[in-house]
């Protein structure tokens, strides 16, 4: 029988060996779909702990990357016993790195943390023009758009993208969050985004507050 709390703690501690051995033993016992879902939820709670420790300055970006990998591998082990029951989705996010910027580390960290928090994330990739964001929003009708960028030139592209949302008449249907090294409160206001963050864990919390 899997100790869900211990699993959550092991994920929070980023103890890969412990997480994997717990899950392998669990899967070998042929658990029900419902039990498997609980295991997934336990891992996701572990990710929330990772996010908190990151915000407290205990963990750093390297740890978030490792946590993302750990969660992906954990879900991979659980897949055969998960069945078709999909976990409940709390909202939809369209995510991408804006035009001119090729960086994706921050975007990917945010994606794995947002997914762990229950969001369905449509990641359109790096160096994406405003039209690509607009088209994806029209296609999947998300509550939230996340724009990422590391270089200072990203700020201009973020503004272009928000302007394109306005021109397409969809700006009022979505909340826009911008993230990455150059974003500030002032940049956020100029761009016309609803929120900004340089911290993926905080970003996920902002998104959660929007869909509650």
């Amino acid at each position: 029988m899997l100790d869900y709390e211990a699993l959550t703690k092991a994920v929070g501690d980023l103890d890969e060996e412990d997480v994997m051995s717990k899950l392998e033993a669990f899967v070998a016992e042929n658990p029900s779909h419902e039990e498997a879902q609980k295991a997934v939820a336990a891992c996701q709670s572990g990710m929330a702990i990772v996010g908190d420790l990151f915000e407290q300055g205990e963990y750093f970006v390297g740890d978030l990357i490792f946590a993302g990998e750990l969660l992906t591998n954990a879900i991979e082990i659980l897949k055969p016993v998960l069945g078709q029951v999909s976990s409940e989705k709390i909202g939809t996010i369209v995510l991408g790195t804006v035009a001119g910027d090729l960086h994706d580390i921050g975007k990917n960290i945010f994606r794995s943390m947002a997914e762990a928090a229950g969001f369905e994330v449509h990641d359109i990739g790096i160096d994406q023009p405003a039209e690509a964001f607009v088209n994806k929003v029209k296609e999947v009708n998300p509550e939230i758009v996340g724009m990422s960028g590391v270089l200072t030139l990203a700020l201009e592209s973020m503004k272009d993208t928000v302007d394109a949302f306005k021109a397409a008449g969809i700006r009022d249907n979505i909340k826009v969050i911008i993230g990455g090294n150059p974003v500030t409160k002032e940049a956020c206001e100029q761009i016309g985004a609803d929120a900004f963050t340089t911290n993926a864990a905080e970003g996920v919390k902002i998104c959660q507050s929007w869909v509650q």
Partner: peptide, 13 residues
């Protein structure tokens, strides 16, 4: 080192 769509060269993963 590759060029982004805006012409700015950068270091990808």
């Amino acid at each position: 080192w590759i060029v982004g769509s805006g012409g700015f060269m950068q270091h990808p993963e």
